[in-house]
Amino acid sequence: MSGVQHREVASGDDGMRLDRWLRSQFPGVGFAHAQKLIRSGQIRVDGGRAKADTRLEAGQSIRVPPLADAPARKKSPAEALSSEDHKFIRSLVIHQDDRVIALNKPPGLATQGGTGVRAHVDRLLIGLQGRHDERPRLVHRLDRDTSGVLLIARDRAAAASLTKSLKSRHARKIYWALVRGVPAGEGGRISNFIGPDAATRGETQCVLHQGEPGAVHAVSRFSLIDRAGTRVSWVKLEPETGRKHQLRVHMAHIGHEVLGDRRYLDVQNWEAPGGLEEGLYLHARRIILPHPSGGTLDVTAAMPEHMAHGFQLLGFDETLADASEPEDLSVRR
């Protein structure tokens, strides 16, 4: 049996409730047992008693009694990862530091679980947790069939910082897409209201009028990078808001659906160029935003195989997009 422990509250746990901190530090302690330890005064904060909802401050000392008799918590299915699972999630890492992990999510892998969804990124994140670290946290999501940069926070404070940045104009999310036809001009801005499509019982989204049930404001920017005749274009997309299927709905709304989009591309008498492989041609290429520890986080993800093959087939040179970017990517044009 271990003796009494004294642990210092880390900067990443500043503002966390005492009961949640206890369970995050000692996963074997169940909810009821944690509440009992706190109520009975066995858990002390800077030498004094505290309540379960006490908000902790970085640097405080927490006294924890011996926990040998604490009921062990059973592993959940999400934590019972195989060696293949561990190897797979680690193979997706394209950036890692002490606060942030970035993955290159492949198409076909869901970000979070749902009805009938067993394989998803959130389930696999336990495979990226260090021995004494917090469980990594999702801070945004990508559609199942969309590939590319997906950010993961390694601690609670990093999650709050990244989430705040992603909701502000301090973050830039750059997507590449192959779309049907050629948009007029060099690009533009799409601003309207979208929400669940009643015709599909919410499986898809559609453009709605302001005030209709479920309608939310959505803004996206697009710019033409290159074209393959008049049938297919390569565009850069930048969402200024983060709505479900936003980019796919917006491109369909202006008549230039994303290739391979089984939900929104349904145009009679139109066929994609021969030789294109199956898959959604939408890729979260790059993300630029403030790093939780200061400075700028700038992560770029390579295209999945089907998109890389499509670019080669259509004669697109990906360096064209890189050459078109301004030196200061933190400033919106």
Rank of each mutant, 00 (worst) to 15 (best):
Q246T: 13
A70M: 14
F31D: 09
R221P: 05
D13I: 03
I101R: 02
E8F: 07
V232S: 02
D122C: 06
A252V: 04
R123C: 02
P66D: 12
A215Q: 09
D14E: 14
V29P: 00
H6M: 04
Q112Y: 14
G294R: 15
P107G: 03
F88Q: 07
R332C: 10
G30Y: 02
D53K: 10
S220N: 06
I94S: 00
D298P: 05
Q268I: 07
D133S: 15
G260T: 04
L67W: 05
V182C: 09
P304V: 01
I94G: 00
A52D: 14
S11K: 12
V64R: 06
M251I: 02
G185V: 07
R7K: 14
E79S: 14
A301Y: 00
A119H: 15
L329C: 15
I190V: 12
I43M: 11
A158T: 10
E327K: 14
A308H: 00
K164V: 02
R141I: 03
L124W: 15
K173T: 02
Q312D: 12
R63V: 09
P183S: 13
H132C: 08
A160N: 07
L297V: 10
L138N: 04
L142W: 00
H245N: 15
D226L: 02
V331S: 14
A119Y: 13
P27V: 09
G114D: 14
P213T: 01
A302E: 00
L276C: 14
I43K: 05
P239K: 08
S161E: 03
A32Y: 07
T115L: 08
D46R: 09
E305Q: 08
P196A: 05
R172M: 09
E277P: 02
P239R: 07
V29T: 11
R144C: 07
V182E: 06
L142E: 00
L162Y: 06
L276R: 12
G188H: 09
G188I: 08
R135Y: 02
H140N: 14
L109W: 02
P292T: 15
S220K: 04
R7V: 14
E84R: 08
Q246E: 13
V64Y: 08
A301P: 01
L81S: 08
T296N: 11
H170S: 15
M16C: 11
L297Y: 03
K236G: 07
K167D: 15
W270D: 12
P77E: 15
H33N: 06
G41I: 15
I174H: 01
M307F: 00
P196H: 02
G242W: 05
T319C: 00
